[in-house]
Design a binder for these strands. Sequence first.
DNA 1: AAGGAGTTTGCACGCGAGTGCAAATTATTC
DNA 2: GAATAATTTGCACTCGCGTGCAAACTCCTT
Lengths: 337, 337
Amino acid sequence: MDDSRFFESDTVTADDVAAEAGVSRWTVARAFKKDASISKKTRQKVLAAAERLGYAPDLLAASLASDRSNLVAIVTDDFSNPHKLVMLERLTRILRREGWGTLLVNMTGDADASSALLAASQRRVDAAVVIGTRFDDRALHTALGARRVKKLIIFARLSQNPNTLNIACDDQAAMRAIADHLLARGRRRPLFVAGPDTQSAKLDRKPGFLAYWRERTGTTPPAIHVSQYDFLCAIDGILPALEGRAPAEMPDVLVCENDIIAIGAMDGLRHRLGLRVPEDIAVTGFDDIPLAASPAYGLTTYRQPITNMAEALVEILEGKRSGDAILPGLFVARSST
Amino acid sequence: MDDSRFFESDTVTADDVAAEAGVSRWTVARAFKKDASISKKTRQKVLAAAERLGYAPDLLAASLASDRSNLVAIVTDDFSNPHKLVMLERLTRILRREGWGTLLVNMTGDADASSALLAASQRRVDAAVVIGTRFDDRALHTALGARRVKKLIIFARLSQNPNTLNIACDDQAAMRAIADHLLARGRRRPLFVAGPDTQSAKLDRKPGFLAYWRERTGTTPPAIHVSQYDFLCAIDGILPALEGRAPAEMPDVLVCENDIIAIGAMDGLRHRLGLRVPEDIAVTGFDDIPLAASPAYGLTTYRQPITNMAEALVEILEGKRSGDAILPGLFVARSST
DNA sequence: AAGGAGTTTGCACGCGAGTGCAAATTATTC
DNA sequence: GAATAATTTGCACTCGCGTGCAAACTCCTT
């Protein structure tokens, strides 16, 4: 291996490749561009020269010159849910495969949304994808940064904001599947356990479940909110609502807004209240995080179509889609019901 | 609110601000630069003008013009460990606070390392931080992309590669703390459960534990490897090693390389083998992921000093540090021992 | 008030590549 | 083989801002 180049002035530009290949700089650019008008032979020649020199196009300069950067910002404010990791993995993998870079921006709380979007826009991202739980949906379009971002996409949530695009799971269909399953198993007294009730883009899970349950049984189930999407908070939020209830008053299933809450609920039920799941009380979640499949939990849940959602995102980025994408997921029955 | 600007030709440049403030473009740049030679009064004037126009410096153009981008790539290949989420959160938060952007690159397997680093270098990152488990450490410096990256940092692992910098937890000190604790609790027959034995940058946990245990007791404990850092794989990897052992042959503690393996181990012990933790067998982990604190696991573990590690990274980025950073963490005793 | 030190401001040039159009080359037709 | 169409190549200009240096200015001293 020739390591001498390692210490050379490293930056090899399109000009160098052009000289090496005996063509002009613009021909070099064409060789690297899909569907460019260039002959096969020339492209081969240029690519070979580039290979020899170790050239790779500078995406920064390209972004500056053109009006697209092939960069998308993922702006998120909640790192306590393992499901976020699943989404990040899927998004980064698919985006990279399709030629997009990913800027990860940590939005530290509601007040930071504006500054987080600004930070993204300063890097000229082609789109910002918000995967958050605590931002103020309504304030988004007045945010300093938001109006500088070409496309603003709310991922895995539903926003009413007319300036944003939604990519989400079909919560209503999901909750119908869950409710049908529970009714078939003879559950009659559900308690819906939702996450924090913020101003952010919402989920359709709670309204979806309550409405459909009412439609099927004539009664609207009770619901509570826990303070954060975090299983310790879930335990703390759920126990006060259950302790001291007469047996007949106890719900026979906790329908949780997501898996993290459901897992906190199971832990609380088992280890604090000494109840058995599913014998004494059933539990359902949402997301199908890896832990849901563990023998300790065996959580009945609903898997979001993350891959399809990521592909919908790509369609939006490529301008092939201009409307919301509300996609169906997959109901997963396990032992917790 | 005046929304008219929303539809205007949006890009307001330093020239516009200069005109508005009645100064030159370069003075505008100075107003936005810390420690620049500019009078307080002029800076105020410029910032006010910028505010009025909604101007923010274009970091892309800045990166192109200068030789730094204030961008760092986080290159990772393992999204199944919730601890990754903790690291990502801490890194992105601290980096952003210090003025650095974060590019997240999903490295899909060993063979992809070169291309992942290339992708990062094409965006002119000032450094690439590798947080991986499956890449080939030795091949890193021959990687096409690696030599185009100014600084290559291995995070939370130890690399022998002379061209990289390591930022990691002091595994040896950690394992001493764990061993001391176990010995004090009367455990005598540990089984070390490590992750996959790859060519990637290693951890010092297994050698550290075995050596120290031998030093204290005169015997080297046995060790096994599981195929992935994933709790289902951990269950599958551990059970065959334990099933069918005579009681006297059973280890009295599983010392696991990280929490994910430990949690898989606990699940397997309890739900497959019907053993009690810690009565029949103790378990220790590493990382202190959120789930470790749940009542269901109460895992004794060791917390990596992620915040300090992130700050060490910033020091490296700023050129204030040029050597490895091996930092002490915190031993956390819970009910699993 | 002149001289000098220290501070503040302006400017030419370059970073690396995309765009749209014109020139040059090749392929096709009669 | 000439004329035409189709393809391929080259180029001026631009994107928004940093660098290093020189000019201009402020303030203080004597």
